[in-house]
Amino acid sequence: MPFDAATLLSQLFTGLVLGTIYVLLALGLSLIFGLLTVVNFSHGSFYMLGAYLGFFVLGFTKNFWIALVVAPLLLGLLGLLTERWLVRPLYGRSIDDPLLLTFGLSLVLVEAARLVWGKMGLTFDPPAALAGAVNLGFTYFPAYRLFVIAATAVVVVALWLFLERTTLGLVIRAGTRDALIVRALGINLNLVWLLVFGIGCALAGLAGVLAAPMRGVYPEMGVTIVIESFVVVVVGGMGSLLGAIVAGLLIGEVVSLTTFFAPKMADIVVFLVMAVVLLVRPSGFFGEAGLME
C-alpha cells in the first residue's frame, strides 16, 4: 500500500469533511432529542429531500448559493408541519411512538422520492467558483470540500451564539433540562418545540445540499448516514451539542482512516467505536446520565 505523510494528511482532511456532514446531521438529531425527547428517524429522509430540493432549486435558478439557502428553509418548513401535525399528537406517550412514526415517515419519503424522481441517482455539480482544487502544501484538495468545512464551522458558531446569547436559546437550554419548570414559569413550550423541530430539519436539509456535490443525489442517500449519525449522537451523549460536534468529527476521521487502511472494516467500524465508548462511558462523551428515564 502506498503510504506517506501527505497521503495520511489528505485522508485526515477527507475525514474532516465527512465529519462535518455527521456534525450537521447529529446537531439536528441531538437538538430535537434533547428538547422534545423525540428520536427523529425521518432525519435521513429530510437530508435526502434537502439534496433533491437543492438540485431542483439549482436547476431552476442556476445559482448554487440560492439553492444552499432555499432548500434548508423548505426543509425547515416541512419540519414545522411534521412536528405540528404528526409528532405533537404523540407527546406524553412512550418514546417509541414518535420513533415508529418518524421511521414510517422516512419509508414513505424514500419511496415517494423513488416514484417522483426515479431510482437513478442525479449528479449535482459544485458551483463553478468552487470547482477546482486548492494546493494545501502537501496535497491538492477540492475547493468545494474546504468550503463545506468552512460552512459547517459557520453554522456551528451561529448555532452556539443562538443558544447561548438569545432569549429563545435560553428557553431551549432550560427546556432541554426541565421542561416542566419552564412551563410553570409562564413559557409556552409548544411554540419552542415546533421551532426546534424546524431548525433540526433545516440543518438536515443543509447537510443534504452540502453533501450532494460530493456524494450524489439518490433516494436512499439518507438511509445509512442517519444510522451513523445516530451513532454520533449516542457516542457524543444524547442531547449534547458539544458531544455531537466532537463525536461527529471523530467518527468522520475513524471512517475515513478505516476506509483507507482496512476498507473491509469501514462499514462496521462506526459500531465498534460506539460499543467501546458505551462500555467505558455508558452516557457518551458529554451525556448526562438518566436523560432517558
Binding site: L170, V171, R173, A174, R177, V182, L185, G186, I187
Partner: peptide, 14 residues
C-alpha cells in the same frame, strides 16, 4: 445548566 442569573431571567421572560 443555567447560571443563577439565567434562572432568574427565565422567570422574568413572561
Amino acid at each position: 445548566n443555567l447560571t443563577v442569573y439565567e434562572n432568574l431571567r427565565l422567570a422574568m421572560l413572561k
